[in-house]
């Protein structure tokens, strides 16, 4: 039985092995999961839990959600994606969606960073000021 601290340390090492040029390699992740599952490690469950948590965090860090009140044109989507990749790196996955309740403008979330230029956010700020 290994300690939780040790499991975290080992998961971190496995996570580092899965990175290629600061990006997470999907194939390596699969291989690591299979190896750990197949291996006779005494605390493989804790290692896998920690490893998956780190993978999820990395995925969230490299996933951008773009919401807009109206459907963005293809040029606008490309420009936005390019801007995001310039800031967050080429491994960023961007998804676009429509949300009419935003009234106008666009809202971008990358990991814990949020860029809100929507009319809804402006009105909420105005209401808070009242």
């Amino acid at each position: 039985m290994i300690s939780n601290k040790q499991a975290k340390r080992e998961a971190k090492q496995l996570f580092r092995l899965c990175r290629v040029e600061s990006l997470l390699d999907e194939n390596r992740v699969r291989q690591v999961v299979q190896q750990v599952n197949a291996g006779s490690h005494r605390n493989y469950r804790a290692i896998l839990d920690e490893f998956l948590r780190m993978v999820k965090l990395d995925c969230a860090k490299h996933a951008a959600t773009v919401e807009s009140a109206t459907t963005l044109s293809a040029e606008m989507q490309a420009a936005t994606e390019a801007s995001l990749k310039r800031v967050y790196g080429p491994g960023l996955t961007t998804s676009f969606s429509d949300r009419p309740s935003l009234i106008g403008g666009m809202r971008i979330q990358v990991g814990s960073d949020v860029y809100d230029g929507t009319v809804e956010a402006g009105l909420a700020a105005l209401e808070k000021r009242f």
Partner: peptide, 28 residues
Amino acid sequence: VQATASVTGKILTPEDQRRLAEATTKQV
């Protein structure tokens, strides 16, 4: 806010929407 929200959605043109989106992109 309620009145503005109900009115703004109707009066914003596609050009306004594009301009607002570009402003958010500039923030990034």
